[in-house]
Design a protein around this nucleic acid. Structure first.
Lengths: 206, 206
DNA sequence: AAAAATTAATTAAACGTTTGTTTGATATCA
DNA sequence: TGATATCAAACAAACGTTTAATTAATTTTT
């Protein structure tokens, strides 16, 4: 992947996140990236292939960390969940623009092949978390919960605050121009909430 | 609102939910609704005003029920939360197409005036839930939780399962053509999960 | 009640833009 | 010299929208 291609992709993520795939024109993108309109098709072939290239480049960040947490044998199950929460929030807050883009595409049923590609990016993570939860249940350290829905709660809560600055600020009673995602206090607040929630829900006080 | 306008709006909700605002063409819509292309502009003035009309018509369902739950003095705080969960799931599952549309628009920063209108639709509901939680904390029946983030968890969990059939089915290990949103068993499953989650998190066992 | 006049609804066609994409010429570099 | 990169310009197709003519429905007048 050349510098120029990455440069275009990075601007594409910004625009796709703000205006959606259909709402972003090649001309907008070319202007913002400071290149000629023809360069996008020259490098990527088409707007849709540009999107696929973006997926391929930006989805690489997902794997790895979660796996290590799951395999770690020196920490308890609930500590694993807490580490998962921390790393997940960290990752999603940092890559929130890209995350917004794939969330959009996941909701739409145009371009269904891309939908499958996005599921393939997101699903492995949920599988790992599921493994931790089910192990905890077998161990007797966790209560008998509904693992898929616990995952929906974890990711759903983070998505809920991540996907709309306007709604998030309204919910938190913050002023309009506050950017919660760049405030370490806020990401810690979300993490603390989820950790306490999971502790009280998962742990078996027997 | 005439029958014809409502008829067009109902088809617009379907298409907007599937393909997004930019991804839906007036010609697609006219064909699907069985009317001439010119009728959309004749009745609504423009594509954007059609969207606003849709907002005005379809957002009416939101208010009312939650208010009654909050005011009810013959049930406990946790029972109020459980009723909120039931009515919320019921409402969102029934109106999931419309909910998907406003969720999309909330994520994008094109047409910011519409964003504000959507926040104004969603926010009052969260205020009522917040009131219940804060009352519970004052009563001593609830632990000292972070009310805005509890709301984010409630709505986020429901959104997470609601916004992508493909992802939802993958998470639940269901086959591709299963429609969870029309299965009463599934909505009960989500409701049970959220109720147990909230019970163990909110209740003060002192 | 019938006829005329007025308003509303519907249509096919066209309008001007914008869209993604391609071309062919020119510049840059190896 | 040959390959790669960049450019302004043009392309056809699709877009939201408007027009002008026609039909349907409603109201007014006789």
């Amino acid at each position: 992947m050349t510098d120029k291609k990455e440069h275009i992709i990075n601007h594409a993520v910004e625009l796709f996140a703000e205006k959606g795939f259909e709402g972003t024109s090649i001309r907008d993108l070319a202007t913002k990236a400071g290149v000629n309109v023809a360069m996008v098709n020259y490098y990527f072939g088409s707007k849709e292939k540009l999107f696929e290239s973006m997926l391929a480049l930006k989805s690489s960040y997902t794997r790895g960390v979660l796996d290590e947490i799951a395999k770690n044998k020196s920490i308890s199950d609930i500590e694993k969940i807490e580490l998962v929460i921390d790393s997940h929030i960290n990752k999603l807050f940092l890559n929130r623009k890209f995350h917004r883009v794939i969330h959009q595409e996941l909701m739409l049923s145009k371009r269904e092949s891309l939908q499958q590609a996005i599921v393939d990016i997101l699903y492995p993570n949920s599988l790992i978390i599921r493994g931790i939860i089910e192990t905890g249940i077998k161990n007797g350290s966790f209560k008998k919960v509904d693992p898929p829905l616990v995952i929906a709660t974890l990711t759903g809560t983070i998505n809920q605050v991540l996907l709309s600055k306007k709604m998030c600020n309204k919910l938190l009673n913050k002023e309009e121009d506050y950017v919660p995602y760049e405030d370490a206090k806020f990401s810690k607040r979300v993490a603390d909430h989820l950790k306490q929630l999971m502790r009280s829900y998962l742990l078996n006080h027997s």
